[in-house]
Design a protein around this nucleic acid. Structure first.
Lengths: 348, 348
DNA sequence: ATTAGCACTCTAAACTATTGAGTGCTAAAT
DNA sequence: ATTTAGCACTCAATAGTTTAGAGTGCTAAT
């Protein structure tokens, strides 16, 4: 029996093994499976099957006299074709709906999504900041703050608000600023922010040619504000519940843990990983080395894009040890993504 | 020799011991001190002195055949009367000045202060959000976002900007909102935010009596925005570099570390501790149990309030193991507090 | 094809030296 | 009266040993 196609019995045993290992965290032996797998077989027979699973690379044993542990590929097969995804507990649904009910500040929603993900799953929760492929300038407003500084308030898309304080060459009074804002709003409200930036460059030239000092600075201010705007959206995420990872025995290696935390801080690796998900449908899972990042070699990542109007705005998910309760975590990530999308949509 | 007054020799040895222990992290024995303390005494004599220091509670030994380690009280005496505070390295000063140079967003400054504190000291850096005893409303602005929601922009004090999106019973057009804002600005600009809230309550009654629907909602909106405003300032801080703590051997106990991280997350204990500093002058240090919080029983906290115009706005500091280089950390905290105060002041 | 039996392997835990750093005490030296 | 050499003693850390038990793989019987 070494066909690469697994028969039902082998599948069933693999499933039982993974489930037991996920529960207990201890290598699973033939006796335990004989007792608890539901299949009526002697340990000896099960040993034969396990031996096959091992040569297929689905399980491995830490040492001769230990039981078997799923490999990344073992988990993969389990997740792809053996898993019984649990319907979401009613309690959990309520929690999610409550926390992700309508709220008008997108930032708040993102934060809450991240918190609720981590607290429900006891893993680290991550939500990327929404990234609109098309950033429509909705409104711009200037307020004088002091002699040399002006507050620029920019509203983009539905209701994302950003502030930027910029310095000006001279003091402007309120009506001057109002005039400038009116001009910009009249010309550019509803336009994509990139397009606005391009237009402004042209207008800037023109204003300079006309030696129109006022328009020159007005346009300058707008450009500055919009520039730092698009920068700040360069890619970021909200992380919560990293500490949960310290509770897992398999993460008790302080050095590995530190590397993971450092990766969380640098953000780069996580963002790259999440970028891969952005074009996929529904929940996507990276098990162990599958992520391609050695830092997360002992971790699993369960992710899902979240969308508004069918457009993917970002990705959310959880990170934990490979030994996580996929059957429970997957629907949580799935539903959170949907509810977050809905909440962001609801604001319109 | 068991007078509670320490003679010079004993002080010198304590100093040498603390310095060596801070450097090496290993219990210090009589031989090492004989060699390196600069005093020409035999190990035997030094043992006698150490024995005295121990009965005074200034040092202790982990076990019979280990050297001595400073106790909290030992560190306290060291810090209070034996410490040679190092002048700040020029490099470090440059770094600090660069990062805390003028920038017009207070939030950004706080963040940067926290980052730079942690990166210079290799400890966890903490900066509390500025807390103005007197919050002056400077400007309020309403912008229509959608049918049922309005963006409220509030500028308080010098240039702290806050946004709040609130729901309204009906749609308002731009000019209505402008009118409301004008009214509020005319009446309340420059007034303390608490006073504004009180006045608004009265005006609200009046408007209701007059059945003035428009003013009623306008005032309601303002109240809502101001309320969530004062809440959000309830007490918070920016933390950075917690991961640094994982590098210290004495913090290698995962459970303790987790408790500390949890305390950082909950924020309560740190805020209480920092509150004690708010009325003190200059750098304040809590060594081990002195903080009064068991979570930080193995930690030292070096803090300083930061001020603008002589008014304390907040507190910043670092947290690390008790074994930290006080001579270097103290001036860093001190100067950072001063530069942060200056940067916040500079904005006016 | 399945299983009982059994020898074998290897970890984890419990014990047992062994080493060496550092102490405290005592008696001699300064 | 200090200081110090000398020495017995303590105790953590390390390495080596033993034991127990869990689990395996193989073989021969069912």
């Amino acid at each position: 029996m070494s066909e690469s196609e697994l028969n039902d019995r082998a599948q069933h045993l693999l499933k039982a093994l993974v489930e037991k290992y996920i529960k207990g965290g201890q290598p699973v032996g033939s006796q335990a499976l004989a007792r608890e797998s539901g299949i009526n077989l002697s340990p000896a027979t099960i040993r034969n099957v396990l031996s096959d699973l091992e040569s297929l690379g689905l399980v491995s044993s830490p040492h001769t006299s230990a039981g078997r542990v799923p490999t990344d590929q073992g988990y993969r097969l389990f997740v792809d074709s053996l898993l019984n995804v649990q319907p979401l507990n009613n309690d959990v649904v309520c929690q999610l709906e409550e926390k992700l009910g309508s709220d008008d500040d997108p930032q708040d929603l993102i934060h809450r999504a991240s918190t609720i993900l981590s607290s429900i799953t006891n893993l680290a929760g991550i939500v990327t900041i929404p990234k609109h492929e098309y950033i429509a300038l909705r409104h711009i407003e200037f307020l004088p703050l002091s002699q040399k500084s002006v507050l620029v308030v920019i509203v983009i898309n539905e209701n994302e608000v950003h502030n930027k304080i910029i310095n000006t060459p001279r003091a402007f009074n309120r009506s001057e600023l109002e005039q400038a804002a009116n001009y910009l709003n009249a010309h550019f409200a509803g336009t994509d922010i990139q397009a606005v930036k391009k237009s402004l460059i042209n207008e800037l030239k023109e204003a300079k040619n006309n030696a129109d000092e006022f328009m020159t600075t007005a346009i300058n201010m707008a450009s500055q504000a919009l520039n730092s705007e698009s920068e700040s959206k360069a890619g970021d995420y909200i992380l919560d519940g990293e500490i949960n990872l310290m509770n897992y025995a398999e993460m008790s290696d302080l050095d590995k843990l530190r590397l993971i935390f450092e990766a969380f801080n640098k953000k780069r690796d996580v963002l790259h990983l999440f970028d891969q998900v952005i074009r996929s449908e529904g929940v996507q899972i990276f098990i162990g080395a599958e992520s391609g990042y050695t830092v997360f070699g002992d971790c699993s990542v369960v992710t899902s894009p979240y969308k508004v109007d069918g457009k993917v705005l970002g990705v959310l998910g959880v990170i934990g040890p490979t030994r996580i309760a996929y059957d429970k975590v997957i629907p949580v990530v799935d539903v959170t993504a949907k509810l977050l999308g809905a909440a962001l949509n609801h604001q319109k």
